[in-house]
Amino acid sequence: MLEAVIHKKLRDFTLDIALRAGPGEIVVLMGENGAGKSTALNSIAGLVCPDAGSIRLAGSVLFDSGTGSDTPVEHRRIGYVFQDSVVFPHYSVRENLAFGLRARHKPPAVIRERVDYWLRAMDIEVLAEVKAGNLSGGQKQRVALGRALATEPALLMLDEPFNALDTDNIRLVKELTRTFVTGMQIPCLIVTHRMTDCRDVGDRVCVISRGIRKWEGTPEDLTGCSCAGEEP
């Protein structure tokens, strides 16, 4: 379970938002560019420090402005897939998947086993030894997703994961996300600006505008909501 209350002054407005996501639940954050969606994710990940608020994940406090607690990024156990599928271009796909496990000092046997599992799960076994810099957009996205999930995070966050992907890869990444979020029973936040994504993967949709939650509900109700914006 993720419970986050974030208050952060940005250049043009103040981000003031409360987010909740239960185990196995996918919450889609929607809104125009610069609405504060990515800042919300960065605050939860610990890359940006909120001015005030609290962030709780799976029973532990990651941030609390009241008590002054602030868990460092590397100890938050959050799988974060950045926009533009950030893979480490100088490493092979296998080394990319192993990166988080090595950083957490897992035994080599465990690393090998888990990497093999995620290579199969993301259907990138044949690419295992390929330098990640040479992959296509869809392949990179699966490497980034597998790499994030391989560390067994307590929360998965995807920032605009379907940008610059073709239709087949969008469908594939959505299916994989749904499968593993449900399977691992972890909360998941997806940032997008496209309504179709909400309908396809979202359990709940939260529409943000200028840092404030404008609407929240199920994807089915979203179509009737005037605040949802235009379908691109």
Binding site: L47, Y80, F82, F88, P89, F99, G100
Partner: peptide
């Protein structure tokens, strides 16, 4: 250097020294 590389490595649990040696320097 795109900060997303180092930030991704941090979320994956890498220490600053490890990120410098394994991500920043090679790139």
């Amino acid at each position: 250097l795109d900060p997303a590389y180092e930030q991704t490595a941090r979320t994956l649990g890498a220490s600053p020294l490890r990120i410098f040696a394994l991500i920043t320097l090679p790139l």
